[in-house]
Write a protein that binds this DNA or RNA. Structure first.
Lengths: 206, 206, 206, 206
DNA sequence: TATGAATGAGATTTCATTCAT
DNA sequence: CATGAATGAAATCTCATTCAT
C-alpha cells in the first residue's frame, strides 16, 4: 500500500537513521529498524539514499549543516572578550550536550576510521571552524589588551576540550553510572577557570 | 598444524583483538582476522573466550589493568600544586596520545552504549580515579593558599577535557587531515592557560 | 511530464527492450533501463505489456514477424542449383551477421528453455522454414542431376550450421577477442566447400 | 550439523552448479537451489568459491579441462585425412550433443556478454583450439595431395558449424518440439557432404 | 588442545510490479 | 494515459558460532 510522498519523508528517515546510528553504531544499526521506525519499507530508503553508507553520511551532514550556523556567533561587536567567551562556552555546552548533536562526535570518534571522507568533512567543516571562532575570540581579547595568551592556536583546544568532555560525560559516562553533570554549572566553572586561572590573584576574590 | 600451548597465547590474542577493534570497531572487526593475525584457528579463540563480546571486554579490561598503575602518578609529595599539575598534565598528555592507550577511550566512546558493564568499569576504575587525582591536586592547592578554585569537582573536568581533546586529535583528526599537534607544546600551553588564566594579570608577562 | 500517445510508442519500447535483452540477457535487463531509454516511466510499460516476460516475448516475436519476409529469398526460378545455393548462403550470412537479426537466435539459445512457446514459435516459423528452403534447393539440384545428396533432410543442417556459426562468431567471439571474420569471404568459402567437397577432384583446380 | 569433508564435495558442487546454470542460465540460477541439490548450506558454497561468478567460471573451466583433452586427437600418424576428419566429426558430435557439454556453449552464447573474461577463456581454450585441430587436419590433407582446400582458415568453420548446429538442435530445438535428430547419422552425412561435396562427381556414387 | 568444515541467522541490496493521483 | 512513490519477495553474501575429529 503506497503512501503519499511527503516533504518530511526524507527528514523522517534522517532522524530515524540518526537514532539508530546513535544507539548501535554504523555497523550495528539495521536498515530494517530504521525503515520500521519511519514506517516505510527497506526499499523506500533506497529511493533516497543509494547505500547504508550514503544514508549515514547524509544523516551526519544534514545535522551539521542544519545546526552549525546557529552554533557560531555572528559578530563580536561591542562585547568584551570575556563576555564573548562566556557566552560561547555556555552556548556550546548546552548544544553539544544534547543527544542529537552529541551523536556526531560520538560516531566520528567511534567509526571515523571507517569513513575517512566523513571524518575529514567533520574536521574541516565543524571542528576547524569552531576552533577558528575560539581562536578569533582569543586574538580579539589579546588585541584589546584584555587577554594574555601566548599561543592562541594551542590554547583554543583547552577551551574546546572542556566542552567536548562535558558532552562525552553526558552521553557516555552518565548512562554508565557516572554522577549527573550540571551542564550550565560546568559551563560557568569552565569559563571561570579559563578566564581567571587557578593561581590565586592578589586582591581578587576566587 | 597444531601449535604448542603457550603462556603468551592469550596475550597474543588480546593484542591482535585490540588491533582489530581499534582499526574497525567492534562490529567491523572479524574473528577471522584476529585468528589469522595470531596464527591460530578461529575455533581456538573460543577455547579462551566465550564470545566476541567476551573477547572485546577482555581486551579492553586487560589493557586497563595492565596500564592503570603507570597511568597514575606515583606520588605528589613535597611539591607545589602548580608543579604537580604541570607534571600531571604533561604525563597524561604523553600517555594518552599513544595509540595503545588511546584505544580504550576511543572504543568506550564508540561502543560504550552496547557494553554498559565495560563503560561502568572504565568509568569507575579509570576516569573517576584520574578525576579524583586531579581534584586532590586542586584541593591541595586551595588548602595551601596557592589556588583559587571555587568548585574543584567541576573544574577538574576542564583539566581532563584538554587532555582528552589532545588524544582525540591525535587518533581521530590527524588521520583525517588535521594539522599535526605537538603534544608536549599543547601540554605546556594547557597548563599555562589553566594556571594563569586568560585575563591579563597586572605586572605579569603574558 | 506526460507525453502524447503515439503510434510509435509501442515500437520504441520494443526496440529499447530488444537492445536491453540483447545487451544483458533476459534476467539481466532492467525495466528501469528500458523505460529510461524510451523516455517513459516504468509503469507505462505495463500499460502495453502485462509483464517482463510478455515484453520479452513480444520483442522477439515482433522482430521475427517484421523481418521474416525479407529473410527468405523471393524466388529460385531459372537458376542452377549451385547458383541458388551460393546466393542463398551469401544472403543468409549477410542477414544473420547483423546485430538486429542475430538478436533472435542468441536469445532463443540463451533463454529458450525458459520460454518454450517462444522457442517453438521460432523453430516453427523461422528455423524450419529456412531449413525447408535449403532442402528444397538440394532436392531441386538432385532432380536436375546436378547434385548428389543422399539425405537432404540431414545435409541441410550442414549448410545452416556454417551460417549460424558465422553469426555466432560475429556476436559472441569477436567481442571476446576472436579474430575478425570476413563474412562475405566466409560465405564464399562455405559455398565452395559444400559444393565441391574437400576431396580433390581430378582435373579441377584446388 | 557439520558433515565430513569429502574429496567429492567440490565435484558435487560443480555438478549441481552446472545443472542449475544449464536449466536457468547464470542470472536465473539460485545458490539456494544449488546448495540444496548438494545437500549443504549456502554458506558452504562460499567456502570453496568466492562468489556466484567464481562458481560459474569454475564449473565451466572444470568441465572444459576435464573433457577437452580426450576430445582432441593425439596424433595424425598413419591415417588418411578423410578418416581423421570423419573420426573427429563423429566424436565431436557425440560429445557436444551431450547435455553436460552443451551447457557451456549455451551459456556462453546467452550470457557471454556479461562475462567477457569467461567468453575469452572459452574462445581461447576451446573454440580456437578445436578450430586449430580442424585446420591442421585440412592442411595435412592438402599436403598429402588428398584434399583440395584453398582457404583452410575459413573452411574449418564450415566443419565446426555443422557440429555446433547439431548440438544446438539437441538442446534448444528438440525440447521445443523440433524433430528428433539422429546424431550419429548427422555426423555421417556432415562428413560425407564436406568430403565429397554436393556437386555430382563423374563416375562416383553419390 | 586445536582445527577444518560447516551452518543458521541475518545483513544489504535489487527489481518487477502496483496504485493513488 | 501516465507517473512517482512505494513495496514484497527474493537474491547474494557475511560471520559468529559449533563440533567431529
Amino acid at each position: 500500500m503506497p503512501r503519499p510522498a511527503s516533504p518530511t519523508r526524507r527528514a523522517d528517515i534522517l532522524a530515524a537513521a540518526r537514532d539508530a546510528f546513535n544507539a548501535r553504531g554504523f555497523a550495528g544499526a539495521r536498515l530494517d529498524d530504521i525503515a520500521r521506525a519511519v514506517g516505510v519499507s527497506k526499499a523506500a530508503l533506497y529511493l533516497q539514499f543509494s547505500s547504508k553508507e550514503a544514508l549515514f553520511e547524509a544523516s551526519v551532514r544534514e545535522l551539521i549543516e542544519r545546526t552549525l550556523p546557529e552554533a557560531l556567533p555572528a559578530s563580536f561587536a561591542g562585547q568584551s572578550a570575556s563576555a564573548l567567551l562566556r557566552r560561547f562556552i555556555a552556548f556550546a555546552f548546552e548544544r553539544l550536550a544534547s543527544t542529537e548533536m552529541a551523536f556526531v562526535p560520538r560516531v566520528i570518534i567511534g567509526e571515523g576510521m571507517n569513513f575517512p571522507d566523513l571524518a575529514r568533512f567533520y574536521h574541516d567543516e565543524v571542528v576547524n571552524r569552531i576552533l577558528g571562532v575560539i581562536e578569533a575570540v582569543l586574538r580579539h581579547g589579546v588585541e584589546q589588551g584584555e587577554f594574555a595568551c601566548a599561543d592562541p592556536a594551542l590554547a583554543r583546544r583547552s577551551i574546546a576540550g572542556g566542552i567536548v568532555f562535558g558532552a562525552l560525560w553526558k552521553i557516555v559516562f552518565e548512562p554508565a553510572g557516572g554522577e549527573p553533570l550540571d551542564i550550565a554549572a560546568m559551563a560557568r566553572v569552565h569559563a571561570d577557570t579559563l578566564l581567571d586561572g587557578l593561581i590565586k590573584r592578589e586582591g581578587l576574590p576566587a
